[in-house]
Design a protein around this nucleic acid. Structure first.
Lengths: 223, 223
DNA sequence: ATCATCTTGGAACGAACGTTCGATACAAGC
DNA sequence: GCTTGTATCGAACGTTCGTTCCAAGATGAT
């Protein structure tokens, strides 16, 4: 049917502009009238396509999370190596985020703006995404916590790094998605300390610093 | 003067409750009337102490950033070792955040809710904080970029990990500030890979994985 | 007792909000 | 040519918003 296709396209058009307005003013700060003006769709017509302002936000979030999850699973299916799988996760997340900056901010910023059933459903798909990430993380190695960091904290910190990007990324001066994903993956996997790459052998790469044990934990240092 | 002290106390009382309401409903979603109800201060009295809703948010943010920065500088003055200085930064941030969850969310979440001069001033103190962190980071080692991650991306990712905490931290199940700070510091410094701790010298710590060059950048891999 | 400083409840302001309504316009099916 | 269903619109509804004003107490210093 032609009708149905047009309908879908119209909805997408509205959702895109709604996401833009939500990004600019926040969900509560945005008004349906601004969305109407931005999209060129009359105020009352918006309610022909959408039950409420809440539903607009809900559909934006569900759509975005569905797309990001689908793409992730397709890409993960082709990656075996645990480290590569982690990199795939990060790259997938950042690519989607930088391609869809409006949706990105909405996903990361408007967690609590939904209520009731809408909120529950979005929380559920977010949870699925989180579990997928946990799975990828646990493929990395040491059962139960890698290196003194609990899996939960590690994965949520990784999401922190990725989701925070929307607050600072400027296309003109910052790396694009691919390079940024490499940086953040490296940071997450190897940390920031230059000494961690062993300089061939026994070399004192000047300024050799002790690692300040601080907490024994599951260290198993130089076994 | 007794009066002046009372005045200050009253303002603090109002700001605390305002921060709480802002956390619960967001700046735009919160109303002055709710702040009045929550604080027990009459609607009209709020305007005796504060020029506008914007000023409430402004004072909350300035106060919080000032406190966090003051505490940081005091603690940094006593720390020499670069790694320890980084740990101090993280611990200071997370301690303040978990002690003041309301202000924490406001600081991290309401970046764009201010306008004009208020916004500029808050942006400036945030920038000071960022520069301090950059300074601490650059004390860590290799001049200009540690390990394939630009200083800017590294520091902003660290802030990402720390600032994201407000979205997931549950006091009952998650580590308290000190332990959490240790985890995130370790993650940032050494990463998550168990192999990253160099096994003495030239060792092939089984499962030695290539690092997937992908992009030359400033790699200087095992030179 | 007097005065200035706080503090209140209540009423009001214009503006903006999310949402609804009823009326059109137009295409396809009979 | 009339009906039916989809799409679109301007106008309006009732509510809440941030903010202001005011008259009347309360409080503490002189």
């Amino acid at each position: 049917m032609r009708k149905q296709q047009n309908h879908q396209e119209r909805v997408q058009h509205i959702l895109r502009h709604a996401a833009q307005v939500f990004r600019e003013r926040g969900y509560e700060g945005a008004s349906i009238r601004q969305i109407s003006r931005s999209s060129g769709v009359a105020l009352s017509s918006l309610y022909y396509y959408c039950r409420s302002k809440q539903e607009l936000l809900y559909r934006i979030e569900i759509l975005a999370f569905t797309q990001i999850l689908d793409r992730l699973e397709a890409r993960l299916a082709a990656a075996r190596d645990p480290g590569e799988r982690l990199r795939v996760l990060v790259r997938n997340h950042l690519e989607y985020f930088l391609e869809h900056p409006d949706q990105m901010k909405v996903m990361a910023h408007e967690e609590e703006s939904l209520a009731g059933a809408y909120r529950k459903e979005v929380a559920e798909i977010k949870r699925r995404y989180y579990r997928k990430a946990l799975e990828v993380f646990e493929g990395l190695g040491g059962k139960g916590g890698v290196r003194r960091v609990s899996p939960r904290v590690a994965v949520l910190s990784l999401f922190g790094m990725m989701n925070w990007v929307y607050t600072w990324h400027r296309a003109q001066i910052d790396p694009a998605a691919g390079e940024l994903a490499e940086m953040i993956s490296n940071l997450f996997l190897e940390g920031v300390r230059p000494e961690a790459i062993p300089p061939a052998a026994g070399g004192n790469g000047r300024r050799l610093r002790r690692l300040a044990p601080v907490r024994a934990g599951a260290a198993r240092a130089n076994s």
